[in-house]
Amino acid sequence: MALFKNITIGQYIPGNSAIHRLDPRTKIIGTVLLIVLLFMVDSFLGYALAAVAIFGIVQLSEIPWRIILRGLRPLFVILLLTVSLHLFMTEGTPIFRIWFIEVTWEGLFRGVMMGVRLALLVMGTSLLTLTTSPINLTDGIESLLKPGKRIGVPAHELAMMMTIALRFIPTLLEEAEKIMKAQMARGADFQSGGLMQRAKSLIPLLVPLFVNAFRRADDLAIAMEARGYRGGEGRTKFKELHFGQADAIALGVSIAFVVLVGVLF
């Protein structure tokens, strides 16, 4: 699996911290609140407070910092781009100037702010997946979407799709690697050539991958039918979600924090 070892997005780190134990619904709402907050604040102090809050949650979650920071690595290029765009494109009081590129105090401020905002956003949301198992996550989403059923939101179907996707991602990655190797053994070259040529070289990989995925989907549908699946109606849950006291407190504190910081800063 050498080719795909760098994929860590959506990874779950099992644990039993206060954060791990929270109801997934609490964590999902909390994450949404955090996103809202990060788009509301517009001052250095606001960011500082949001950062403190996230650092606090990371401490509580007992997730090692290097794992949190590793999540930022794939975003490094985007981060750099965002920061430099703001740095060079904002007009205002110049700090220095090289040829036609002008760096301004305003630009510096905006650039750093945007960088911090993006980094906090990624850290905050990855905290959700790092501390919540995929099953809990889908259960949480399903439960939160349930009220939308009346207006046609297919809550159960969405959750089922997510579960199956999560279940089959490792299988498909493994399969992709195997097909790639088999085609390389027949002289295929996935690395060199121009854009068009490279896209074309993917056909021997993508066609079998899709054909096999459809075959799997067929098999799975039959297997699910044989196991009595007939949609979400009348289904019970192996593990029921439990919204407890800790959740009430966590949610209360989050809301209060977001309102306070969001409005004040």
Partner: peptide
């Protein structure tokens, strides 16, 4: 192609849930 869930216990629970 016949295991649905992301953990063993959740998968075994799939039938009874249905």
């Amino acid at each position: 192609n016949q295991l649905v869930a992301t953990t063993v216990e959740e998968d075994v629970a799939f039938g009874p849930e249905n």
